[in-house]
Nucleic acid binder design. Structure first.
Length: 120
RNA sequence: UGAGUAAGCCGGACAGCCGCGGGCACAUGCCGAAAGGCCGUGCGUGAGGAAAGUCCGGGCUCCACAGGGCAAGAAUAACGGGUAACGCCCGCCGAAGGCGACUUCAGGAAAAGUGCAACAGAGAUAUACCGCCGCGAUUUCGGAUAUAUACCAUGUCAACUUUUAUGCCCACCAUUAACAGGGCGCAGUGGUUAAUCAUAUCGUUUUCGCGGUAAGGGUGGAAAGGCAGAGGUAAGAGCCUGCCCGACGGCUGGGAACUGUCCGUCGCUGUAAACUCUAUUCGGAGCAACACCGUGGGAGAACAUAUAAGCCUGCCCGGCUGUUCUCAGGAGGUGGCUUGACUCUGCCGGCAACGGCAGAGCUAGAUAGAUGGCUGUCUAAGACAAAAUCCGGCUUACAGACUUACUCACACC
RNA sequence: GGAGAAGUACCCAAGAGGCCGAAGGGGCUCCCCUGCUAAGGGAGUAGUGCGUGUUGAGCGCAGCGAGGGUUCAAAUCCCUCCUUCUCCG
């Protein structure tokens, strides 16, 4: 399935202002319930993290993580992932672990599936 | 073998699974009157040598002028060629660097004119402060020479005489005369100058003036071509001679810049990345350009007007709310948008950059922005780095791998 | 993506080829004033990196975002980079 993305700047601003927030060494995640029945993803990678090649790589890894793990998330949320300086040198697995831990702190994971994931 | 120089090329590959953008084909399903859209399946395709910086040149679009010239402003700068064009490229010349292969150079004009050159230094675009030399004055000399003087020696006889010089003093003798000693002095001759004085000449020295000179002078980035000369001069000086360097003109060679064991003339500070002059080129802005569709709202015109209803507002006046057309347009969308000064192969021309001909091919086109994840193999996969209107260059960043040609050193044959 | 502007001390900044060995203001340090503080007055602050030298001063080189170039000489002129800021739908 296709990943719905957040495109407009005012939607990002609304999430930063009113959304729930949780952080990790590599990521900060903002989330807010929407009425569309699907989840939407927004990714922010600032210029401080590197030049265009490295920023694109981080953005694509985060998008892939979201795509592969979206079945474990509850529906109907807007999620914005902000990459921090630490995520520059980290690979896919480190980012995925951070993402799942942070989503768990926000209560976004479906409990059964997340338990399965932890046991794995 | 080692150390280099130049040019070129690559800059991960392969296999499996999941996933993304564009294209083509298909048809089950859903929406729609249709065009078509959504979802799906299959095939094929999908970032760079710099995509970067935005430093130049063009295509394209709009605005201005719709013809030419001048001025202003900007850019470029040996010469010849290439190119659509360029500040790019090739060849070649000159200069600098390197043993060499080779590299680097904004490399026109300073003798058209203007400006600037701090400090230092005698003096900075032409000088005369010191110095050297000549002339005039002044001054020093325990410098020289000559004369006079001084001193010493000799001599002081004779003759001559209008110049005191057979003169003066002392002693002796003696008051007549003769003989005869010493000293001083004069003239002449010879010598000395240790001390002193004068004059003249020469030298030397102090100061001043007039003139000559550009050899020398702790400066400076630069001091008026450089070196040598028992050439020359009062002292000097390219003033002269020989050699060297440079500029200009002629001649030779070359298509030209330029060149040379040639000839002649000359010896000019540097700076134009200061103004300037000469030659050549340039209208401005940029795909967030621009064109089209266009919601809500806005402006204008026409029609409708029931004196209907509602609202501002309780009443009067006034305004708004309707329909159609036009205008400008900012949400959003479509085009611009990828077939092009294109790529590959072969032949021909050219030293080369490049050009010509023939054949074959189509190779990203997104719009918050598509290339990611996992596993395995290749010994190892680690650099710089992501198209956004498109081309030609330049500049900057870059782990490593490879090819070709050439240079130097050493060893061997 | 495109078009521009600016970088000088801790901060704001002047300086537009030579006397710059860097003006001025704020801030900071010390002193005076006051019973104490504030305000005010005075002095200092490119003393920062290296070298040399030292009781202390001093002297030389580098240094105006970085690196090259032109010039006898560069904060200033030219080129290339870096950083920051502004504007364009």
């Amino acid at each position: 399935m296709k990943v719905e993305t957040i495109k407009n700047n005012y939607e990002f601003r609304r999430l930063y202002a009113k959304g729930e927030r949780a952080g990790s060494p590599r990521l900060v995640i903002y989330c807010r319930r929407n009425r569309l029945g699907v989840h939407r993803l927004g990714i922010t990678v600032s210029t401080k993290l590197g030049k265009a090649v490295h920023r694109n790589k981080i953005r694509r890894r985060l998008k892939e993580i979201f795509r592969l793990n979206s079945h474990r998330l509850e529906n109907g949320w807007d999620i914005v992932v902000v990459a921090k300086q630490m995520s520059r040198g980290s690979d896919y697995h480190e980012l995925e672990a951070d993402f799942l831990r942070t989503c768990g702190r926000l209560g976004l994971l479906i409990p059964d599936v997340s338990d399965e994931g932890n046991n794995r």
